[in-house]
Write a protein that binds this DNA or RNA. Structure first.
Length: 568
DNA sequence: GCCGTTTTCGGCCCGACTGTTTTCAGTCG
């Protein structure tokens, strides 16, 4: 699939056009097309073949033709044209805070700045600050931007961002001047990675509150501090923004700062069509304030049901809300158990007993213990003798519990030849079996996973794409074929809740849902504290529009066992 | 460049903050 490759080209065209000070909306159009391709589950080449490219939102005639051109010839004239007089290293600088297209163009034209190193030199030599509209402070801020970029230009993992935000929110809540403190932005939407952390609060004395905020003990640097808005960089190297609004604007501001940008653009268009104006202070008819204290009243006034933050990505949620057809998203209270975890029997720190004790604290009815199978030597996979020992321990422990049980599971390797790591007579003894790829990431993965799904005892495919958010692309796999096979065989696909995996991801889950595939959530915990990461899987499922009945963890075990394909 | 309950042209996001300037340009979200 070349979706990502083409998306990257469009992003670069957008950067180049921005640098050249082209029409801002044209830049946006390319960025939108890039985003649509990045999130596309289908193969862009297939859509091109069947003439369906222009059915995608944000893809019109001109962009469809460029995609077709690139697929046919491996080249895109537009891309070559707009980038030919720009050094390849230059556009990277646009990602640095306080460097925008104007500053960059000026530094390039006057001082031949082409790289980050050039920019540092231009600042050190004092030449940058001599340019028009530049100055001491401006140069200093660019230098800070470069430092931040070099330290951590990667997005923050959701679990880290959530922790940082929770600490800042708790700090602000201690202060009597502040009320209604809440995280907004991509964190409130539970996006899998977070750029910076947005926090919203209400209070009378904005300036004072911003002052308190900038004295947060973990502040490394204060990037801005005004009457209603402040920005700090905390020790993790992440930027935290705080906005202060009036009580009566709280809902409007929460809506506005939760985003996504694309969702908000569409919402404002709906407002405009009704002769209204929506901004972070409220919904207005002319100068008259008509709504804004809560999000609900804003959506209601626009003729929409309130939309869960996780859905606000402009992936059809506004259309669904207009028709009153929003999904009833699965919630934590629907969940009865965790369906993947490891113990000391393979490669984990936690004993079975410790995992069970923690699971009961979490009010689960069951957990599925899924240690590795024998060929996973790197993970101390279990040969049959150790497996039988584990079963006896599970049986012994289960006698002690009431209203809780440990299910006998396994994360079995799908081998390089597509075979499963245990024979069927062992497999059928498990309560549930997860089949996963842990070896041969580039070798016939689609065929091997498909073959595994033909096995009546393989109930779940674990982390189906194998991606690691921080470090690995994932297997070479045709997910469309895998989903078709999953739907045909009644195999469930996993949403692995491990924060670096979140696999399947939101857009793939939404696609799976549309195909009628059931989803299982597992933390893949390798230690007791990691059982608390379940929420990241749950939230990813919510971003994939999943309802409780579509997530198998919501069924009591008596019902769940009957959903297995071997019981059908 | 896209899009259409304002429909084939004209609108599409605009307000806060900073730093440069001396009334506003650039950047960010």
């Amino acid at each position: 699939m070349r979706n990502k490759e083409i998306a990257e080209l469009f992003n670069q065209i957008a950067d180049a056009l921005e640098f050249k000070n082209e029409n801002f909306f044209k830049v946006l159009a390319y960025r939108k097309a890039a985003r649509v391709l990045e999130e596309l589950v289908d193969d862009v080449a297939e859509l091109d073949r069947t003439g369906k490219l222009m059915e995608l939102p944000g893809i019109g005639r001109a962009i469809a033709e460029k995609i077709a051109e690139y697929l046919a010839t491996g080249r895109m004239k537009k891309y070559e044209e707009v980038t030919k007089d720009i050094p390849a290293s230059l556009l990277e600088l646009l990602n640095i805070q306080n460097i925008g297209p104007k500053t960059l163009a000026l530094a390039y034209k006057e001082l031949s700045v082409k790289t980050i190193a050039d920019m540092k030199k231009a600042i050190a030599s004092g030449r940058l600050k001599e340019l028009p509209m530049m100055g001491e402070k401006k140069a200093e801020n660019i230098l800070k931007g470069i430092e931040l970029y070099e330290r951590s230009h990667e997005r923050l993992a959701i679990n880290i961002a959530e922790e940082v935000a929770a600490r800042v929110v708790a700090y602000l809540k201690q202060n009597a001047l502040v009320s209604n403190v809440s995280a907004a932005g991509s964190l409130r939407r539970w996006k899998e990675t977070i750029g910076d952390i947005d926090i919203l609060a209400t209070g009378k004395d904005g300036k004072k509150i911003i002052g308190i905020f900038t004295r947060y003990p973990e502040t490394r640097e204060v990037a801005a501090a005004g009457d209603t808005k402040g920005s700090i960089v905390v020790d993790e190297g992440v930027q935290v923004d705080l906005r202060i609004v009036d009580e009566k604007s709280y809902g409007a501001a929460l809506q506005y700062f939760t985003g996504s940008k694309e969702h908000n653009v569409k919402l404002r268009a709906i407002a405009a069509a009704k002769g209204l104006k929506l901004n972070e202070y409220g919904l207005y008819r002319g100068k008259k304030f008509v709504a804004g204290k809560t999000e609900e009243e804003i959506y209601r006034y626009l003729g929409l049901a309130w939309i869960e933050p996780e859905l606000r990505e402009d992936r059809g949620e506004i259309e669904a809300a207009l028709k009153n057809k929003l999904p009833r998203l699965v919630e934590m209270k629907d969940i009865r158990g965790d369906l993947q975890m490891h113990s000391t029997y393979s490669d984990s720190e936690a004993t079975i007993e410790e995992l069970a004790a923690e699971a009961q604290k979490l009010d689960y009815e069951y957990i599925l213990l899924t240690d590795h199978s024998q060929s996973a030597r790197y993970a101390h996979g279990m040969e049959p003798a150790r497996l039988y020992r584990q079963w006896r321990e599970i049986e012994r422990l289960n006698k002690k519990f009431e209203g809780f049980q440990i299910l006998k599971g396994i994360e079995v390797d799908i081998l390089k030849d597509g075979k499963i790591d245990y024979p069927d007579q062992i497999l059928k003894e498990f309560d549930l079996v997860i089949g996963s790829i842990h070896q041969g990431f580039t070798k016939n993965v689609t065929e091997r996973v498909s073959a595994a799904m033909e096995n009546p005892y393989v109930d779940i495919i674990g982390h189906p794409t194998g991606r690691l958010i921080s470090s690995r692309e994932g297997y070479v796999i045709d997910l469309n074929k895998v989903m078709e096979k999953a739907a045909a065989t009644g195999t469930w696909l996993e949403c692995n809740a491990y924060p670096d995996r979140l696999d399947l991801n939101d857009v793939n889950l939404k696609k799976a849902r549309e195909m009628g595939i059931k989803i299982s959530i597992g933390t893949d915990a390798h230690g007791v504290p990691e059982l608390r990461w379940f929420k990241f899987g749950l939230e990813t499922c919510r971003r994939g529009w999943l309802e409780a009945r579509e997530v198998v963890n919501t069924y009591p075990w008596e019902k769940l066992r009957l959903l297995r394909k071997s019981a059908q």
